[in-house]
Simulated assay, not measured.
Amino acid sequence: MADQMPRWPYPRWIGHRGAGKLAPENTLAAFRLGAAHGYRMFECDAKLSADGVVFLLHDDTLQRTTNGHGVGGEQPWSALSQLDAGSWHSRGFAGEPLATLEGVARYCQANACWLNIEIKPTPGLEAQTGRAVAAAAQQLWQDQPGSPPLLTSFQPEALQGAMVTAPELPRGLLLDTLWTGWMDVARSLECVAVVCNHALWDPTLVATARTSNLRALAYTVNDDWAAQRLLDLGLDGIITDRVDLFAPSL
């Protein structure tokens, strides 16, 4: 007999990197805009600065989303904190700084929001980043036991580091393809969820996840037809850029 499905406190609709493409990704401005559209759960990308500060950045390098250059994880927070992470998006966000996980945690807690933290390590720092992100999350949410962040990653080594450091925090394995052995890895990491490219989900995969007591989430869903297909499949979480299109009460 299958075990009982894990408790799932999270909203179904999740704002990708805060507010999708409506604001500079992974900044506090994006979280504020996503919340203004009614969203109460957000996805973000977390990595380590050279001096161990957990901050938000998707890419390994700084060029696309800041006025900086080089590998973000090779620079100290004192330098990263001075960068402009908003002008690349639009003039209205000029001067928006990079965000720390601590700052995002404070915002989410003050506004009763949930967070999906994707552990996005600088290559070669998978386990170290997983440990650091989990330790930071454990400390930041220690007074919020009812709304823990969901820690996810494409990198099993990062999730392993998170599990060893903060086993009580829920984990999810991110999948862009159904590579051989993914289910065994998800079980070994004691994941509560799998977060798949939305095109991978079909009735068979949903049944496979349910049989293993895994919650089913999808990224990044930006079209009506795709969202409806996933809703019909009964997915537990839908990550979207289109916070302006999908009402989170759907």
Rank of each mutant, 00 (worst) to 15 (best):
S87M: 13
T152E: 00
L217D: 00
S81A: 15
T177C: 11
A94Q: 14
R210T: 09
Y10R: 07
D184I: 04
W77N: 05
I238D: 05
P9Q: 06
Q109P: 05
R106I: 07
T61K: 11
A23E: 07
T152P: 01
A134G: 02
L22K: 06
F42P: 07
Y39N: 00
L48C: 02
L22R: 09
R32Y: 01
A247G: 14
T180G: 08
L189P: 03
W182F: 15
V195S: 15
F42K: 02
R171T: 01
N213E: 12
M1V: 14
P170F: 00
P121Y: 10
V133H: 01
A199D: 13
D224K: 13
W141Q: 04
G38P: 02
Q128E: 15
Y219N: 03
N111V: 07
T240Y: 03
A79R: 15
P170R: 00
P248H: 03
A29D: 15
L83D: 08
R229V: 07
L235P: 04
L189Y: 01
G130F: 00
T211Y: 12
A158C: 01
P145L: 05
I238W: 02
S49F: 03
L200Y: 05
V194A: 02
R32H: 05
H69I: 06
W8L: 03
H89N: 10
H89L: 11
G181F: 10
M183I: 13
G234C: 07
A99L: 09
C108H: 03
P11K: 04
I117L: 01
T177P: 01
R187W: 09
V133M: 06
D51G: 06
M41R: 01
C108Y: 03
N116D: 12
A132G: 07
A2E: 12
T129N: 03
K47G: 09
Q82I: 11
Q82G: 14
D3W: 13
R7D: 11
R210E: 12
N197I: 04
S87I: 10
L98C: 09
L200M: 10
H16E: 11
R215A: 05
L125F: 12
Q142R: 14
C191F: 00
V194D: 00
D59Q: 04
T240V: 11
P248G: 06
L98A: 08
L80Y: 06
F246G: 11
H37E: 09
P167E: 11
A227M: 13
F31P: 10
M41A: 13
D45F: 10
A162T: 02
S212N: 15
C113P: 06
A218F: 01
